[in-house]
Structures are given as C-alpha cells and as structure tokens.
C-alpha cells in the first residue's frame, strides 16, 4: 500500500504549490491512474514515490514505512519505473537492459538469464529473436514491451508508469493497454499510472485520481467517475459520450442473461454471432451494429452461456447516462 500524508511540493521560485496537501492511498495490487491536464501535478506526485522528486513537506509511506527512512537506491531498486520515452539504454542489448536491476541486486547469471527469457515471453517477444537486439532495431511498441519487461525484472511490488503508451500510435497503444491489463492479472502489482488521457484512465484503472492544480478533485472507480463526476472540471475532462464509455467498462459476462446448457446448445445451432465473456458491452454493441442483428450470444470457452440484447444495452447506457 502506498500512502500520501499531507504531501506538499513547491518548486523554488514558483508562487503556487505544484502539489498541494495530498492525502490518499493506493491499495496493494491495484492500478491507480493519476489523470489531469499538463501541469496538474500528476507526474510530480508519481516521481515523489521513487524520490526522483523530494516533497517539500509531508510523508509518503509504502507498507507503513516512511520512504524517507529507506535508502534511495534500495527504494528505487524495489520499484519498477516506466516512462513515455522508455529510456532504454541504446548501447545495451534487450537482454542487458532487462538485466540491469537484477544485476544491481547481485543475482546469479543463470537466474538473470532465466528471468530475461521469462519476461520476454511475458511481454510477448520471442527471446530467441529479441534478446540480443539493440533498442534501435525495435519498433515503438516493441521498445515499450522491453521497457515493461525491464521494469518487472526484479519483480518489484510497485510499478510507476509515466504515460508509458503515450508515444505509440492508437492501434499499438490499445493493444499494449490490453496486453498490460492481461499481464497485470497475472502479476498483481501496485501500479501508479500517470496519463493525460481520460479514456486510458477509464480503461486501465481500478481507481482514478483526477488532479487539478496540484490537488485531487476526485478519487474513485472509473464507473463512479463516469456516473458521478465530482464537479464540472471532472465532467468536462470525461467529456461527452459517457454512456458509451460506460459500456466499455461493462463486460458481457457481467450483464448477459444466462442461458441453460440446453438453451446454449440450441443457440449454437443457429450459427448466430458470438462474443467472449471478457468482451465489453461496447464490443457487443458494435458487433450488433455491424451485423444488423438485435442480439448476440456470449460464450465461455466453447459453451454458449448467455445472451445480450440490443434493448438491454440501450437501457443500461441511458440509465447511467441519465444519472449525470
């Protein structure tokens, strides 16, 4: 758990606090998104966690320990760090980049080698192909995968991510987000994720902290932010089309009408359109719009377990939309 207690940061020569009296907690194993316009203090907030920036006053605690009492190097070695420009070391191979922190921690060679292979597979890069490549031989997306692998190298409990996917094209970006969520399901890290993109925050976050002028104006779940924005600033930040965004947060598995195994068999026979349990309601809606059909089946593995209807989706979207 990461805990901010009355944290203030004021840069010398500036009138206002960059971060003003922050008090909040990030639960272990969750992704907390820090979102807001440039200059809102989100990056400063994040960089105080690994002491790249020192707070003017207040305390930051990790699992109850004030980070001031922890050796800076030791602290940083236990926190994965990923930035937008990635900062891969261009003179080192992919493998050497990943090996940096384990090497600092004095791991044995075999253990490091095994870890490199394991991580490259985790981020979906073939170790045989990529291990000895230099960063300049990689595409933007591949570089960021290596960045993720490097940050995970020593299995740190905490990861700090500063706009990690910000420089990628929209398609690669969406793909990386999906893959990262998938990885997070396995690794369950405590993640502080800075972004200026509210869509990304909604998609990735367990919780979202909306910052404005150095203060948190709202800290709650994506659903709550969308349905109950705390003030006009947050409403404006999330923009219109809330109902559609919310559909994106609902998984087919959660909102479908269940079907019995025999009903499932019958549905299978119709050869009608299918989606997985993890597909979002938005996926379902666009599939319906594409095919022109007013319902879609949901399958779990090779079994059809439920059905979603067009009217249902509309009803859900408007219910949340109205509550704004």
């Amino acid at each position: 758990m990461i805990r901010f207690e009355n944290v203030v940061k004021r840069y010398p020569g500036e009138g206002a606090d960059a971060v003003h009296n922050l008090n909040f907690e990030i639960a272990s194993g969750t992704i907390c998104m820090l979102v807001g316009p440039s200059g809102c203090g989100k990056t400063t907030t994040m960089k105080m966690i690994n002491k790249l920036i020192r707070p003017t006053s207040g305390a930051i605690l990790i699992d109850g320990r004030n980070i001031d009492t922890v050796d800076t190097i030791e602290l940083r070695l236990s926190i994965g760090y990923i930035i937008q420009d990635i900062g891969l070391f261009p003179h080192m191979s992919v493998g050497e980049n990943i090996a940096t922190v384990p090497g600092e921690l004095g791991w044995k060679k075999e253990r490091i080698n095994a870890r490199i292979e394991e991580l490259l597979e985790l981020v979906d890069l073939n170790p045989k192909v990529y291990r000895n490549k230099k960063p300049n031989e990689l595409s933007g997306g591949q570089k960021q995968r290596v960045g993720v692998a490097r940050a995970l190298a020593a299995d740190p409990p905490i990861m700090l991510m500063d706009e990690p996917f910000g420089a990628l094209d929209p398609i690669t970006r969406a793909k990386m987000q999906d893959e990262f969520l998938h990885i997070q399901e396995k690794i369950r890290k405590t993640i502080v994720f800075v972004t200026h993109d509210i869509e990304e925050a909604i998609k990735m976050g367990d919780n979202i902290a909306v910052l404005k002028a150095g203060q948190i104006v709202q800290l709650s779940s994506p659903m709550e932010i969308l349905s109950n924005p705390a003030d006009p600033f947050v409403s404006e930040l999330i923009g219109g089309r809330n109902s559609l965004k919310m559909l994106n947060l609902m998984l087919c598995g959660q909102i479908m009408k269940s079907l019995s195994p025999s009903e499932g068999e019958k549905a299978r026979a119709t050869g009608h359109g299918l989606l997985g349990l993890k597909a979002t309601a938005q996926d379902a809606l666009s599939e319906m719009l594409r095919t022109g059909q007013r319902f879609i089946y949901v399958e779990d593995g090779d079994r059809i377990v439920g059905v979603l209807e067009f009217e249902d989706l509309l009803e859900r979207a408007s219910r949340h939309g109205l509550s704004q």
Binding site: K47, N50, L52, T72, I73, E74, L75, R76, L77, S78, I79, Y81, I83, Q84, D85, I86, G87, L88, F89, P90, T100, V101, E104, R150, A151, L160
Partner: peptide
C-alpha cells in the same frame, strides 16, 4: 545524452557512479 535515458536509470535505482 537523452535525458529520459538518465531518468530511467535513476528511477531504476542505479547509483550516480554506476
């Protein structure tokens, strides 16, 4: 040297000497 490389190195916990 690209500052992001140095920031990454610092953030990862490398000492200045290293």
């Amino acid at each position: 040297i690209n500052p992001s490389i140095l920031e990454a190195a610092r953030g990862m916990g490398l000492t200045e000497k290293k």
